[in-house]
């Protein structure tokens, strides 16, 4: 591994981490480290295990193999609340915003400000307005339900919320996937801002161009395994893109192998495993909004 970077100290470290659902191994032997002031990009095609990986770091799922360390100390999160308490903030693909609740209620959800017995509503409205304005997002009425806002605005609320609540590690789950070119630019600008302010950023994406623009370190996941782990100096955009494309070919190949009636039982079993995994992950992606619920403990 090439983790010896100038910044030195590792904020978060995953050592041979794996996760299985029953007999499906969604993730196997993954080594990743995140340092302050660095963007670690996790790339991979649909079903590569990216979502499983971030859910482990965010505390939504528990890993079944390996060790997760934070500041060199072994940790295991039993709930998202525990992960947050350690300074890990996650901006999910589905953004984890309640659509019928107002902007300020969503912004402070789980971190409400109190005044006496009740909520300090004025302060919460003021701060959420200010924080969004810092990102260049102007929402005229903070009492508006989040569901009435655009995708880019929602993305920014989720990012602003993660930054405001003192995160040390920010996980961004495909923040640009649903955005237009201009809005993606705003988000990428924010990724570099977070990096420059000393946060450790994990940027999940399947777009190598976006990753290469902001990343210091690149990791490619394929069918639940790490297939590439390279620092920025060691790889070009073309190589990164080529590595990404290889994954799709492999999946197609295993389908073909299976169709042309593999003779060895080992081959058939391997193809089965691959297919099961792809199916499982596709399911997860297809039902992005409900998948968190599905696996709720």
């Amino acid at each position: 591994m090439t983790t010896a970077t100038a910044t030195g100290t590792r904020l978060l470290e995953l050592d041979e981490v794996g996760k299985s659902y029953g007999n499906v191994h969604a993730l196997r032997g993954v080594n990743i480290s995140v340092s302050p002031g660095e963007v670690t990009c996790v790339l991979g095609d649909n079903g590569a295990g990216k979502s499983t990986l971030i859910k482990i770091i965010a505390g939504l799922h528990q890993h079944t193999e390996g060790v997760v360390r934070m500041d060199g100390e072994e940790i295991r999160f039993n709930s998202p609340r525990e992960a947050q308490a350690k300074g890990i903030a996650t901006v999910y693909q589905d953004l984890a915003l309640a659509p019928l609740m107002s902007v300020w209620r969503n912004f402070f959800l789980g971190n409400e400000m109190k005044k006496g017995f009740g909520l300090d509503i004025d302060a919460m409205k003021r701060i959420s307005g200010e924080e969004l304005q810092k990102m260049g997002i102007v929402i005229p009425d903070l009492d508006r339900p989040v569901g009435a806002l655009s995708g880019g605005q929602r993305q920014c609320i989720a990012i602003a919320r993660a930054i405001y609540f003192g995160a040390r590690v920010v996980i961004l789950d495909e923040p640009t996937a649903a955005l237009g070119v201009k809005q993606s630019g705003v988000v990428l600008k924010y990724v570099t801002k977070m990096r420059d302010s000393g946060l450790g950023v994990i940027f999940i994406t399947h777009n190598p161009h976006h990753a290469y623009m902001v990343g210091n370190h690149f990791v490619i996941l394929k069918l639940g395994r790490l297939v590439l782990d390279a620092h920025r100096d060691e790889i070009t955009l073309d190589q990164l893109t080529a590595e990404m494309a290889g994954g799709q070919e492999l999946a197609e190949l295993s389908h073909e192998l299976r169709a042309s009636e593999a003779d060895g039982t080992a081959d058939a079993a391997a193809a089965d495993a691959v297919e099961a995994e792809v199916d499982h992950s596709l399911f997860q992606r297809g039902h992005g909004a409900t998948s968190v619920e599905e696996h709720k403990e």
């Binding site: 659509p99 019928l100 409900t290």
Partner: peptide, 10 residues
């Protein structure tokens, strides 16, 4: 409103 989102933010 969205129990998965609520759980995800703690």
């Amino acid at each position: 409103g969205d129990s998965a989102a609520a759980r995800a933010v703690g």
